[in-house]
Design a protein around this nucleic acid. Structure first.
Lengths: 216, 216
DNA sequence: GTCTATAATCGGATAGAC
DNA sequence: GTCTATCCGATTATAGAC
């Protein structure tokens, strides 16, 4: 569906120019195919054979490179960015013109638009509901990515009530993951159709309140 | 995990008293075991053989009663209540003392506390990320259950902007499903620990705003 | 590095005896 | 209604030849 069958050549190692002793590009092709398959189908329904077919190689080769399916999953779901850097990068851009929450929603939506990010996100979300391993990865990413934002918000906002920071971060995660689930996985019509602007305007204030507002 | 192995006798048919010609209780035992397994593991990781073992019967009997795994899933995920009735029932209780959103959060949390509801919810949520069939069922339930609430809210609130009702309902669904995902499936610490009161106070106003507030 | 076997399970589904 | 026996397909993973 995300059709990246046999592209993505010349990934690493700046050595000379010809092919090195142990790099023909197939490893990257397998990784790309795995990302796409895990993203579309989740862990359970993705097969090594299917990945190998997409990459145009034999199934045994996948094992040769990555060992088990578990290890391949971890390698394929690795993001090109560290969670914290994702937030930091988005944070540097346009700070101040709008509420932090609105900016955060735009950042999230922007990340989902990049193929190299969307596939891992989808794969993690689709697999986390049945695989404890995937759940742990998503948990770590969600809290790791959001806690940084929360720390900053708590810094400039509250004076005393900064110790429910983790609770506030979790509330943000619930809304952000809920949006991802309903918009990209469940594909609820109204949310799938909505523009980034509309969603930012609608959900941004919610995050602002979770981050630093009065929670009753 | 939800241990209901061989209970739940005498479910239907008010005929006389002795066992009828085609009802020995095993059918209900299979259904109960299926509910528990689908809820804990999702569709893919649940096996007919495992369900049969839990119910204390042979695997062939499961097929005899329900045919295919798909049909068994549908039967097991059927709620004891119609979505609309769920909202209506919760609506009738305490209306007026608090915001509609806060009441809605309490209703949802209350439903998740009842075993006969939690298992289907979990099963639907766990399976919807990889099965289009399950996704359709969850989609239908989520929108069906929430649209009634929205209709009522739109009635007493807005005068003109009542035609983005489906968009508002979808926003509510995103937060409610996000809460379910993070609290019951992902088990994010702060959300799993939080009390019903705290969650209602924190999330209720969000729903109120989605239902009838200004969305930018 | 790459592929051909092949091992070892496991899962859904069916036929048919009792 | 219930179980035994079985078919058939698919999957992960490994050993080893080229």
């Amino acid at each position: 569906m995300t059709g990246t069958s046999a592209s993505a050549r010349q990934a690493g190692r700046g050595h000379r120019s010809g092919r090195r002793g142990g790099d023909s590009g197939t490893r990257e092709a397998i990784l790309a195919a795995a990302r796409a398959r895990f993203g579309d189908l989740g862990y359970d329904r993705t097969t090594i054979r299917g990945i190998a077919a997409d990459a145009g190689v034999d199934a045994a080769l996948v094992h040769h490179f990555f060992g088990t399916k578990d290890r391949l999953f971890v390698a394929a779901m690795r993001l090109p960015l560290h969670p914290r850097d994702l937030v930091e990068a988005a944070l540097a851009a346009g700070s101040g013109e709008q509420g932090p929450g609105e900016h955060m929603v735009r950042t999230v939506l922007g990340a989902w638009d990049v193929a190299e990010m969307r596939a891992p996100f989808l794969g993690l979300l689709r697999s986390a509901t049945t695989s404890e391993q995937a759940a742990a990865m998503l948990r770590e990413f969600a809290t790791g990515a959001i806690l940084g934002r929360v720390a900053e918000a708590a810094e400039q906002a509250a004076g005393g009530r900064g110790r429910d920071a983790e609770y506030r971060a979790a509330l943000v995660a619930s809304q952000v993951l809920g949006l991802a689930l309903t918009r990209y996985v469940l594909k609820l019509g109204p949310l799938a159709r909505a523009s980034d602007d509309d969603l930012a305007a609608a959900i941004g204030p919610t995050l602002d309140r979770y981050l630093s507002g009065d929670l009753g």
